[in-house]
Design a protein around this nucleic acid. Sequence first.
DNA 1: CGACCCATTGATCGGTCTCAAACATTGTGG
DNA 2: CCACAATGTTTGAGACCGATCAATGGGTCG
Lengths: 243, 243
Amino acid sequence: MKDHQPAAQQAGRPILQGVSLRGGAGGGRVALLDAAGRDELATIGTLTRFPRGAILQAEGEKISAIFNITEGLVKTYRLTEDGKRHVLAFLFPGDLVGLYEDYRYLNTAEAVNTVTAYRLPIAALEKLLERDPALNLAFLSKACHDLRQTQRHEIMLARREARQRLLMFLNMLAPQASAIAGNPQGAVLSLPMRRLEIADYLGLSPEAVSRGLHALVREGKLRLHGLHQIEVLDRGDLAALTG
Amino acid sequence: MKDHQPAAQQAGRPILQGVSLRGGAGGGRVALLDAAGRDELATIGTLTRFPRGAILQAEGEKISAIFNITEGLVKTYRLTEDGKRHVLAFLFPGDLVGLYEDYRYLNTAEAVNTVTAYRLPIAALEKLLERDPALNLAFLSKACHDLRQTQRHEIMLARREARQRLLMFLNMLAPQASAIAGNPQGAVLSLPMRRLEIADYLGLSPEAVSRGLHALVREGKLRLHGLHQIEVLDRGDLAALTG
DNA sequence: CGACCCATTGATCGGTCTCAAACATTGTGG
DNA sequence: CCACAATGTTTGAGACCGATCAATGGGTCG
């Protein structure tokens, strides 16, 4: 139970988090920027606030800035021609939003709950990256982190059964879980997103998500406290699926 | 990793390809390194040759170097505890192999056919990245490129029907296709990998891949010339799924 | 040229999607 | 503060699609 340290995040300053390319910290998520780097980003950035449902950036839109989340949860998604929506990632404080190609956003980014984020104009950011190698390295580290994360997501999607996708999903959220007093095996996961959003992330129907979760409850591995709090009773089953 | 031999010098020079972060080239895949950058990599690198089936690096192994492919095709995969194999990517000349975390490879990389690649020792590469901002930026560009590619792959996997996954797969290979003389609509795709490898990449059984391909043949959209050459008769259907 | 591996084809089974309806939660205005 | 309305969630029944198992045919490499 070493995690749970969002203490480092003041809502007022940029912060970049991820697993560093250099080892250390036992493979845990750490700050990729020192104070100087954060100050530099703060210089060019503007703190912005988004209510739930707000679109930070839309697929195909000409890029003007990327965002660094300091509070709240953001989802990025893409729409397919048959009207389905695929959620590519849930982004937390310390993450960057705004992958682009040919200076156009690839995905739509939407606030899942109330979000505060630093808006970093792309032109200023590029100049900064050109002249600050440390910042450049931090962004490279972050990109590699996101790449690893996306690969894990991909492996989740390759699982055929809803049950296993759900278990891997819960496992990915485990690091962010708060420990339960008196039960080191258990933890309470906070899921701010709706069932439909989970379904779009897992490539399932919301019905399948619901059925899967309740099946795990019946098996005695989970307990639901409302819709957005999940108590993991046996963390062993989850850990087995890290692959 | 016992079956690799140093290769002749003329087999290639380091080359890094991808869609640049800066626009230009109409979003096409371009060289991310200038001559100077390539020379720098050549200085620390060793050209190496791998026969089909050779393991360039194994999941969980302590990292010693990453590879820059100059010829041939590499697949990266991860094994799940139920014995299934998920292929994360097919890597072509101009690509990098060796994503790691905590200085251990995340995935296994295997040569699909005869491969030549530059072996770049990680320590030397890190030093180079520290003192050369241009190289650093090129690697950041490449990481973003791979991230976009992985997201496309993810969206493919989220498709429910085998037919659509196959179409998106062919569409991703389209840029590498050689045009057919006299038919601007058509192209010949080269698929060096086996059906099983395609299946592991698409999250399908090899039977489903076979059935899907032949269904497209029956519809008159494809023609097979042997197992590794696919002629695309109507490129329109593919383009519709760019996702 | 032969042996092995891979690719194809066929039949059955299982799991999720879909459609539909009951239920719970959230947000709103009186 | 409560009641109502609008979403969002859960549960059920049937259809569809790919996985699996099994067998045949074709390529490839020694």
